[in-house]
Design a binder for these strands. Sequence first.
DNA 1: GACTTGACTAGAC
DNA 2: AGTCTAGCCAAGT
Length: 112
Amino acid sequence: MTFRSEVYALVRRIPRGHVATYGQVAVLVGRARSARAVGGAMRSCPDDVPWHRVVNSQGRISRRRQGSGMLTQRIRLEQEGVALRLGRVPLARFQWEPTRADLPRRRRPRRH
DNA sequence: GACTTGACTAGAC
DNA sequence: AGTCTAGCCAAGT
């Protein structure tokens, strides 16, 4: 399994009406320091991956270098009941709390 | 292998 | 509350 495919498998488990942060996804796949790479994986992902359910640590829709994907993300979130307040998703209310069954077996943390 | 590029983040002003 | 920075790391050249 590559890093990307594990990320995709995890993101597919985020239920409608909930969100996860890039950092959270990184932790859940056992690579706590790879939040940035999670963003990279979302940049181009299969159509069946609900990429719009991943936001940054502040509940905001992360800025793209280019393109209008930000608007699409907001619309998709609102369509499934995730309302933004002051430009951010209230994580206290909408952040996904996975159960044990949702989680893959975690990788060994990388040592430095 | 050695760069470069970001949908990241926590911490420091 | 904003703006920077340094550290991070998978992928693509």
